[in-house]
Design a protein around this nucleic acid. Structure first.
Length: 277
DNA sequence: CGTTCAACCTGGGCGC
DNA sequence: TGCGCCCAGGTTGAAC
C-alpha cells in the first residue's frame, strides 16, 4: 500500500500524540500470525511504556516515533499497514496499539490486513546505522534533476523500476512511479543512461509535484480500501490518477488506450503515445 | 551489473 | 455458493 504520500499523511496524522506519554501498549489476541517485530513485542512494550512521544518523523516509507528515552519506534507498513487514531475498519486486523495520555489523550492503532508490515524498537544509534544516508537514498520529496542524474545517469536499467529502488531514492513506489513518468512524458522502459539532462529535470519536477499534491490530498485510497487516513477517511488522490490502474481507458491527454506492462514483477501503466521511449 | 523468481501474508474480484 | 486463479501501494534473498 503506502508510498511516500500515504506514509507522510500518516506521519502528520500521528503528530497529535506528540507531547503525550505512552501509558500502555497492547497486542490484541488474533487468529492471525503476529507481524514481525524487532526485537520482540515484549521488548517494544518494555521500551515504550512510560515514555513521552517527542516527535514523529518519516524516512522513506517508514514512520518513526521518537521517544523521550532517545529510542525510536520504527513502523514499516509495507503493502497494507496503516496508522489510525480512531476505530479500525475491522478489529481482527489490529496488530498493536499505544494508549497515550497527556497533551491529548489518544490511541494509536496499527491496522494491517495482510500482516506484511513490521515494527522495530531501535536506539538512536541503531536507527542511524540502519536508515542513515548510507543505507537509504535521498528523500524523493526534495529531489532535483542534478541529483537524479548523478544517482541513475549511468545505469542501463529502465527508469521505472530504477525510481523504485529505495537504496537509491527513498519514497517512490509502484503507483507514483507510473504517474510521475506519465506527467513528464517519459516511457517507463527508457534506459537511465539514455535520459538527458533536461529529462532528468523534468522527472525531478514531476516527482516533487505529484508527491506534494498527493500528500495534500491525503494519499491514494484504492478500491480495496487498504489505505485510510489517520482519521479513518479515504484519501483523495486516486481521483487524480492519470494512468495507474487505468489499463484500456483513454489517456487523459491524447485519448490513446492506457497500456499495462510488467517490469520487475510489478505492473506499470503508461500511455504509448505520450510517453516517448 | 541486471534480471527473475520465490517468499512473506490476506483478501477482493473475476470466470466458471 | 464454491473453487481456482489473478491481482494488490513492499521488501528480501537466492539464483542465473
Amino acid at each position: 500500500m503506502p508510498e511516500l504520500p500515504e506514509v507522510e499523511a500518516m506521519r502528520r496524522g500521528i503528530t497529535l500524540a506528540v507531547g503525550s506519554t505512552i501509558r500502555s501498549a497492547k497486542q490484541p489476541k488474533s487468529r492471525y500470525r503476529p507481524i514481525r517485530i524487532d526485537p520482540s513485542w515484549e521488548g517494544v512494550e518494555y521500551g515504550v511504556v512510560g515514555r513521552r512521544i517527542e516527535r514523529v518523523e518519516r524516512i522513506g516509507k517508514r514512520v518513526l516515533i521518537g521517544l523521550s528515552s532517545n529510542d525510536w519506534l520504527v513502523i514499516q507498513p509495507k503493502m497494507a499497514g496503516m496508522l489510525l487514531a480512531g476505530d479500525p475498519p475491522t478489529p481482527e486486523h489490529v496488530r498493536w496499539q499505544l494508549h497515550c495520555q497527556g497533551a491529548s489523550d489518544c490511541t494509536i492503532t496499527y491496522w494491517d490486513r495482510r500482516g506484511l508490515g513490521t515494527l522495530a524498537f531501535w536506539s538512536d544509534r541503531q536507527l542511524k546505522e540502519r536508515l542513515g544516508p548510507d543505507a537509504i537514498g535521498p528523500d524523493a520529496l526534495g529531489i532535483d534533476g542534478e541529483r537524479l542524474r548523478t544517482i541513475f545517469g549511468e545505469l542501463k536499467r529502465p527508469i521505472k523500476p530504477a525510481l523504485m529502488d529505495q537504496v537509491k531514492l527513498a519514497g517512490v513506489g509502484n503507483l507514483y512511479a507510473s504517474e510521475i513518468l506519465f506527467r513528464c512524458g517519459i516511457s517507463p522502459r527508457r534506459r537511465c543512461n539514455r535520459i538527458g539532462k533536461r529529462a532528468w529535470e523534468a522527472i525531478a519536477t514531476s516527482t516533487r509535484a505529484i508527491l506534494l499534491d498527493a500528500i495534500e490530498q491525503g494519499g491514494s485510497t484504492l478500491r480495496d480500501g487498504t489505505y485510510l487516513m489517520v482519521n479513518g477517511e479515504s484519501g483523495g488522490y486516486q481521483e487524480a490518477h492519470q494512468v495507474y490502474g487505468r489499463e484500456g481507458l483513454p489517456c487523459p491527454r491524447c485519448g490513446t488506450a492506457v497500456r499495462r506492462i510488467v517490469q520487475a514483477q510489478r505492473s506499470t501503466f503508461f500511455c504509448p503515445q505520450c510517453q516517448v521511449g
